[in-house]
Nucleic acid binder design. Structure first.
Ligand SMILES: Nc1ccn([C@H]2C[C@H](O)[C@@H](COP(=O)(O)OP(=O)(O)OP(=O)(O)O)O2)c(=O)n1
Ligand SMILES: [Mg+2]
Length: 457
DNA sequence: TCTGGGGTCCTTATGCTG
DNA sequence: TCTGCAGCATAAGGACCC
């Protein structure tokens, strides 16, 4: 007996970060808008009381576009595009700095809404989730009908549009949602269908004409290898025997692609996935060479990782440091501890040692700290003794001696009260530095650092 | 002035233990 | 005792995704 056909929905918000910004700045609707990294830049209120937005023209930092409205996409601007190139393509696009905390909050609302349909919700990112709606059929009708209801309710309750794919498996549902997306044209965005269903029996007819690069896991490297083997569509891939495929792209990847090309995908929708790592990294506006700067930065990053571990009730056994040199060579160094920890002091010390085992005299373009290898069990109670909402940021500028004292104090408090949420920044207070701005001469508006925090269940 | 930051999973090499 | 090997943990690098 084969298992009954599942009904999987994949929901993917349209131009997510940008659409969320349009919720609070509706006057930007219809314009090309891009979201980028760099430092905080929300609009400033001008003398006339009107909000003034920055444009790409005035942006001068290192960084990429995280997403763009469909109006901006018509100019060839898209996710992961260097801001420098984006500026050339669309200098008049409104530039808004990403506010991760805000998107995360909106994402939470959306995921909760999904859970009113089924508990089987697997978030893939802030703006995307799989739902196993197999059980909802009797109650709510056919696949396309359920999808339309979900979409309507997201629009109604959150005010955002999304695209929904419905299919018998996860990867087909994901490809189907792509099919339902709006498109960008020089004359403006064109609505998509919003919902696309791939019905049992139609799988291969839908799948085989698609470009292989549409498959999840086929990036530039794999695409080049497949092109070499004469593969350009998923149908071409399906015509390939397993062995040469595995020889070309490796065992796991080859078997995976082989199965997908034949529309075989049994992966279940898994809610409540536990995170496997927590990291924080920065690319500096200018490469760092000063040793004191490096000590300070690694402390800041490590402390913020530690703070997030505590808030999440996680304890890590492996700490790693990542360095990108000015020539973009990237190395990582890791150490596994005998005992797992969530202590700032420990993580900072380990990270600092790992960093200074490297030839940092070469200069440092990027520095990162990550914690992984989490130990099981015991969710920790989060006792927020000091209202330390900002602990983990704002380490900048405090002299090292203060930090030593702060860590000792924090550790003492933690031992006495078992708090998991007191960071040294809470105790040390903050000496806000001006901070280098990617913005040209003039005001550097608000600083909110839209940083951190993957949501993942 | 090209080329982010948050993640996941896989591969390969290497050391340790039985 | 020597060697091979299985199995596991760790470290480092890379490909990929949103
Ligand atoms: N390289 C990327 C890709 C995406 N994102 C962020 C910004 C996106 O808004 C969000 C969702 O990614 P999507 O690929 O779903 O892209 P969008 O939702 O922006 O557009 P759409 O889904 O309509 O194509 O993730 C990012 O930071 N970096
Ligand atoms: Mg999206």
């Amino acid at each position: 007996m084969s298992a009954p056909t599942r009904l999987i929905a994949h929901l993917d918000m349209d131009a997510f970060y940008a659409s969320v910004e349009l919720l609070r700045y509706p006057q930007l609707r219809g314009q090309p808008v891009v979201i980028g990294g760099g430092r905080a830049h929300q609009p400033v209120t001008g003398p006339d009381g009107e909000l003034r937005f920055a444009t790409l023209r005035s942006y001068a930092g290192r960084g990429v576009i995280t997403t763009a409205t469909y109006e901006a996409r018509a100019f060839g601007v898209h996710s992961a595009l260097s801001s420098a190139i984006a500026r050339r393509r669309c200098p008049d696009a409104v530039f808004v700095h990403g506010d991760h905390a805000f998107y995360s909050q909106v994402s939470g609302q959306i995921m909760e809404l999904f859970r009113t349909f089924t508990p089987l919700v697997e978030p893939l990112s802030l703006d995307e989730a799989f739902l196993d709606v197999s059980g909802a059929r009797r109650l709510m009708g056919e696949g396309a009908e359920i999808a339309a209801r979900l979409r309507a309710q997201v629009l109604d309750e959150v005010g955002l549009t999304c695209s929904v794919g419905v299919a018998p498996s996860k990867f087909l549902a994901k490809l189907a949602s792509e099919e339902a997306k709006p498109t960008a044209t020089p004359r403006g965005p064109v609505f998509g269908t919003g919902v696309h269903e791939v019905r049992p029996g139609d799988e291969l007819a839908f799948l085989h004409p698609l470009d292989v690069s549409a498959l999840w896991g086929v990036g530039p490297k794999t695409l080049a290898k497949l092109k070499n083997m004469g593969v350009s569509t998923v149908g071409d891939l399906a015509a390939l025997p397993l062995d040469p495929l595995v020889a070309a792209v490796g065992r796991a990847h080859g078997e995976h692609l082989y199965a997908l090309s034949h529309a075989v995908d049994d992966r279940p929708v898994v809610p409540d996935l536990a995170p496997k790592s927590v990291s924080h990294e920065v690319t500096f506006p200018e490469d760092l060479t000063d040793v004191d700067d490096l000590h300070r930065e690694v402390l800041r990053l490590a402390d913020s990782v530690a703070t997030r571990l505590r808030r999440a009730g996680l304890r890590s056994r492996t700490i790693s440091v990542k360095v990108r040199y000015p020539d973009r060579e990237t190395v990582t160094r890791a150490r596994t501890l005998e005992q797992s920890t969530d202590r700032s002091r420990t993580i900072v010390e380990v990270a600092d040692e790992l960093l200074f085992g490297l030839p940092v005299h070469r200069g440092v373009r990027l520095l990162g700290v990550a914690a992984g290898n989490f130990t099981e069990g015991s969710e920790q109670l989060s006792l927020d003794l000091f209202g330390s909402d900002d602990a983990g940021q704002g380490v900048d500028g405090a002299p090292a001696a203060d930090w030593d004292a702060a860590y000792d104090a924090v550790d003492a408090i933690r031992e006495r009260f078992g708090s998991r949420s007191v960071g040294p920044a809470t105790l040390a207070g903050r000496a806000d530095r001006p901070g280098e701005s990617p913005w040209g001469p003039g005001q550097e508006p608000d600083q909110a650092d839209g940083q951190t925090r993957g949501n993942h269940g």
